[in-house]
């Protein structure tokens, strides 16, 4: 697809902002916006053109309890992501305009290859799915094992007063060791302590439990374990 055609870009941007692109096309357009300034500009123009339709709706006051819940969730999040932020992977991401363009004309194989090439430094650890349900997260680790990435694969629904927490089940037995809270959307990168790193390297299984908002208060799982997954071995 030729993104040098402004009218095509504009149509995609308009349909994106209206919410009419299907899931994969939507994700592709978001990636395109990150790489192609003209796409981002077209999208922002449509967001602004249509904004009055959102502002014309009569305001609805949120429940008074909502703000304290948001405050607690953010406090928990800040605690969970206190580890130093990992610098974003760069360089290979410049492939994305090519990948997005190819995908839009249906060259799915090419996209798969480019995606693979663009992220060589991360290896899969586990796909986390509740029993008899679709996967919710994918866990990866950096080649040196010092960082993990947790990506959401679908909508995560959970009572706002609860958190999901990730645990290593040590192969030598003993109490599970926390790897922190799970993201509800997007992805979370986290640096592991040397102890977590060696435990994860040796572990055969990891688990996810439901905990009070902000995580287990005791350091071991206190709520129901909803997922147990095998750790993939590096070959």
């Amino acid at each position: 697809m030729n993104y040098n055609r402004p009218e095509l870009l504009d149509r995609l941007a308009a349909e994106y902002v209206l919410g009419l692109l299907r899931h994969r096309a939507r994700a592709r357009f978001e990636r395109l916006c990150a790489e192609l300034p003209a796409a981002l500009t077209a999208r922002q123009r449509w967001e602004e053109r249509l904004l009055p339709l959102s502002l014309a709706l009569a305001p609805v006051a949120p429940d008074a309890n909502r703000w304290p819940q948001i405050e607690r969730a953010i406090a928990a999040l800040n605690g969970a992501s206190a580890a130093p932020r990992v610098a974003p992977r760069s360089g290979a991401r410049r492939w994305w305009p090519v990948a997005a363009a190819a995908a839009l004309v249906g060259a799915a194989l090419l996209v798969g290859k480019l995606t693979y090439w663009s992220e060589p430094a991360w290896e899969p650890v586990a796909v986390l799915a509740p029993a008899n349900a679709a996967p919710l997260w994918r866990l990866e680790r950096s080649a040196d094992g010092a960082q993990i990435t947790i990506r959401t694969l679908g909508p995560i629904t959970l009572n706002a007063t609860k958190s999901y927490e990730l645990w290593i089940l040590p192969s030598a037995g003993g109490n599970p060791v926390s790897l922190g809270l799970m993201p509800r959307y997007g992805k979370l990168e986290r640096r592991l302590t040397p102890a977590q790193r060696s435990l994860l390297a040796a572990a055969r299984q990891i688990a996810v439990s439901v905990e009070p908002l902000g995580g287990s208060p005791t350091g071991v799982p206190t709520g129901p374990v909803v997922i147990v997954a095998s750790v993939m071995r590096a070959t």
């Binding site: 959102s54 502002l55 709706l57 009569a58 305001p59 609805v60 006051a61 949120p62 909502r66 703000w67 948001i70 405050e71 953010i74």
Partner: peptide
Amino acid sequence: AEALRALYARTAPQLLAI
């Protein structure tokens, strides 16, 4: 965090309407 609280007070009703 205080800025987020102010932002919430200003915009949450409109965002909730949407």
